[in-house]
Design a protein around this nucleic acid. Structure first.
Lengths: 339, 339
DNA sequence: CCTCAATTTGCAATCGATTGCCCAGGATCG
DNA sequence: CGATCCTGGGCAATCGATTGCAAATTGAGG
């Protein structure tokens, strides 16, 4: 790109040493230089349209003012709001974010992580909280700053920001109980995600609390197709069928919709369905989905805040922030049909 | 972050000069080094876990191996697939992407653009193609490499990658004509977007072609709320009502759904609706939406390819790539009701 | 008038890699 | 056998900013 203005050109115009320009233009050092000089330097810089080369600065200060955000898949609709939340906090503070997608692969995750480390990012926000061969442990060992978002830290002493999954599931179960449902099934997400287990555990304890019969069906991924597949299997069983489904997330719930449709079953008349996340447009599905709203943007913002606290204040306390969730009742749940 | 291995430590272990290490480790220069030496250096590098500091490299080579992607809003569901398409092409080639959201504000756009320039990005992909005070012109004047995606270049000689909007609209109109519709209305997107005008023009000429009466209603933004507002206005008119709506995009079409519902009208029985983009989950709306599928991921991939061609081959030809689109017929369109 | 401290600014090293230049040594050729 | 080429690799400058250190200037106090 075209010839850019450097600090020494500004220095020449202002009649001072480059070092002085640097100090004059930097908030934390400008009090080391005479106010008149500062003004002169400022003028010169503005006149030349100077803007610092952040690569050069980064080399010297060994900070890139960049954070890496590792997510499974941007096209999963819960992530865009999280990413926006992160950006909204970070950009005004001079940081950029680089978002990478692992597609659920540990190998990808590792490779992308290394490439971001190589780019000298100042810290990471991990939204891929599976507990397997994740690089999170290693990152922590290497002294790399990071925060977990939307997923638990799984033993790694990084700060974590999560929604109140237990409470959300409990509210769902309570809602179904009040509608007269007695037999529920939970579509549990992949066991490698900490959230899956939290939600399943809460489902079982909530069923117990409200005196319902609850069974759990395990899904291999958080996707529409998998939700449909597992629901097909549930419906194929000969044992007494549930009257309501508590899905591990909205994608699985959507798969349940598809399964019901292919089986000629109506929602909510024949089967009530509750999702999780309140992802965008879940209120426009057919039928509009009852689900648990998680404050995604706030999750992002909060995680960014915690990361910056680590970077700028060297505060490494492993706080855990739990944000409240809310059950959104729409049209996919109804009073149980008296058969 | 922890102490990192530098090139001179590798040099020491391998018993050679740092410059030699650099050449040995670089694909394009490794043939300047004896194969034995290359092997020795490689071993040393591996043993020490060396990975080059890309900031230092970037300073010297004045390239950051980063591209900036400027979009209006990541939470608009058409953008995640585009961004993924870009990433899929760029990441394996060693580039990272920094995605920023303008929220439609020219001021934001300018500021974000400058901050990315300051970060020495090697080029831009602009997905914010409004023709107003955009920085696109200025960027081109400054000799900055860039590509337009999903929006036309509006006179700036950057390469552009777009879907075949005209054809998509024509197919929609033809489909409606075949269903017996005679009076159509088009919800046109904001005039500042080039796509809006292309689609509106195609709508009118297609109506003429098929002998239909077509009117156009202008929307202030591409959003659900605006679609609802404008459709409300259309329905409030006393003149002869249309029997089908061709919406400028799926968001507007969704707004039409909402409007119809509040007016007690059924889709498709009382009004057929066609969207544009086939954004994720538009097949799960109520009713499943007939819409025009645009290959978003391919748009992204292709734009990334064109950008890299500029960056690496200095090829500045202003090609214009038009990708084919496809009408997806679902349940929001039906044979016109014989009133 | 001298000393000492404080303020302001210049100087030069530094961050870590890349690369033009040049030299040493061996191969090739006439 | 001497001139000429290659090949391999060392040397040092360079990218553009930051920053510890020291010098210069100023002012105050004795």
């Amino acid at each position: 790109m075209s010839t850019r203005v450097t600090i020494s050109e500004v220095a020449k115009l202002a009649g001072v040493h480059p070092g002085t320009v640097s100090r004059a233009l930097n908030k934390k050092t400008e009090n080391q230089v005479n106010v008149d000089t500062v003004r002169r330097v400022r003028d010169a810089a503005k006149r030349l349209g100077y803007s610092p080369n952040s690569i050069a600065r980064g080399l010297r200060t060994s900070s890139s003012m960049t954070v890496g955000v590792i997510i499974p898949d941007l096209t999963n609709p819960i992530f865009p709001p999280i990413v926006r939340g992160i950006d909204n906090y970070l950009l005004p503070r001079g940081y950029s974010t680089v978002v990478v997608n692992t597609d659920g692969s540990d190998a990808n995750e590792r490779q992308l992580f290394e490439s971001l480390v190589q780019r000298q990012v100042d810290g990471f926000i991990f939204a891929t909280g599976h507990t397997g061969q994740s690089i999170v442990h290693e990152a922590y060992e290497r002294g790399i700053r990071g925060v977990m978002v939307n997923r638990d830290s799984g033993g790694v002493p990084y700060p974590a920001v999560v929604g109140d999954d237990s409470q959300g599931i409990r509210a769902s179960v309570e809602h179904l109980a009040q509608l007269g449902h007695r037999r529920l099934v939970h579509l549990e997400g992949p066991a490698s995600f900490s959230t899956s287990r939290v939600r399943a555990a809460s489902f079982l304890s909530s069923c117990a609390e409200f005196g319902l019969s609850g069974t759990v069906a395990l899904c291999g991924s958080y996707s529409v197709d998998e939700g449909q597949r597992v629901m097909d299997a549930v419906l194929a069983e000969r044992s007494s069928q549930p009257t309501a489904v508590v899905a591990g997330n909205d994608l699985l719930a959507l798969g349940v919709y598809h399964s019901l449709r292919t089986h000629g079953l109506r929602c909510p008349e024949d089967m009530s369905v509750v999702g999780f996340n309140d992802m965008p447009f879940s209120g426009d599905f057919q039928p509009p989905m009852t689900t648990v709203r998680v404050p995604q943007a706030e999750l992002g913002t909060e995680s960014a805040r915690l990361l910056l606290r680590q970077i700028e204040d060297a505060d490494r306390s492993a706080v855990r922030v739990v944000l409240p969730v809310e059950l959104i009742v729409r049209a996919s749940t109804a009073r149980v049909h008296q058969a």
